[in-house]
Simulated assay, not measured.
Amino acid sequence: MRQWNKNFVVTGMGLIIPVSIVILWHIFSVSGLIATNIMPSPLKIVSTIVDLFREGELLEHIGITLYRVSMGFLLGTAIALLFGVLNGYFRTIRYLLDPLIQALRNIPSLAWVPLFILWMGISEASKISLIALGVFFPVYLNLVSGIQGVDRRLLEVGWVHGYQGWRLIRHFFLPSALPSFFVGLRSGLGLGWMFVVAAEIMGASKGLGFLLTDGQTTGRPAIIIASILLFAMLGKLTDYLLELAGRRILRWQDSYESLERRKAL
């Protein structure tokens, strides 16, 4: 019960600033301090979302965007896990591949769009691949950093007990790198939501990114802001679920955060 009350208080505190912004936004809209043709009122945004839901469009747009982000996230994470382990553990492979990966990491997302269209057309494969590319880099970077930062004394214990190669990676490197890996997953998921907008510019006829660009093309600011808010809410929800999974998997970790939770209980 006490833990439930604590979660309620923490959630309430997190809502203070967003709710205050919405209230001020509504006051400024009603008083005419904000032009409604540029920044519609919160009630207009809610009305737009409700209309899209009633017409059956909203769930369709949300569904296809969630599908693209989920598939891109899984694909990007799988590739990052492979390259992260190889480059983190094997020095020669890291010297060969890491400079190229670090160079590719700095290319803007929109710069990849023409190339992906040329290679794969405007199919779902090109959209999911673009999202996977965005997810790959932060997951890879954090995993390599986590593997490189494993305590040397811990590895010496493994060597003494005969752990080598894959057994050493599985039992020592990966568990020690898990905290960094989950930081990378959350960063990668955030970039996945950013890249989906670029992906849905690539000839998409459905999705929140398409809805956003359609609102821009047709001059409907309510659609644009509604799409942005939906991106924010869905991104926060998926990040929260990933955070919960990380807490559960890393509950063995004796960290400052776990100390705070024990004090709260």
Rank of each mutant, 00 (worst) to 15 (best):
L104R: 02
L104N: 07
R105T: 11
R105K: 15
N106H: 13
N106P: 07
S109P: 05
S109K: 12
W112S: 03
W112D: 02
W112V: 04
W112P: 11
P114Q: 08
I117D: 07
M120K: 10
M120R: 06
G121D: 10
I122E: 01
I122L: 15
S123F: 09
A125D: 12
A125F: 10
K127P: 07
K127G: 06
I128H: 05
I128E: 08
I128P: 07
S129V: 05
S129Q: 00
L130H: 12
L130S: 08
L130V: 00
I131Q: 03
I131A: 03
L133C: 10
G134F: 05
F136N: 09
F137G: 09
P138Q: 07
V139R: 06
V139S: 08
Y140M: 07
L141G: 00
L141E: 05
N142I: 03
N142P: 07
G146W: 00
Q148N: 14
R152C: 02
R152N: 14
R153C: 06
R153P: 01
L154C: 09
L155S: 12
V157S: 13
W159A: 12
G162V: 10
Y163C: 13
Y163L: 15
Q164E: 14
Q164Y: 15
R167D: 15
I169E: 06
R170D: 09
H171F: 14
H171C: 05
F172Q: 04
F172K: 01
L174W: 06
L174Y: 08
L174S: 02
L174G: 09
L174P: 04
L178W: 08
P179T: 08
S180M: 13
F181H: 03
F181T: 01
F182I: 09
V183C: 07
G184R: 11
L185E: 01
S187G: 00
G188T: 05
L189Q: 02
G190Q: 09
G190H: 12
G192R: 06
G192K: 01
W193F: 14
W193M: 06
W193E: 09
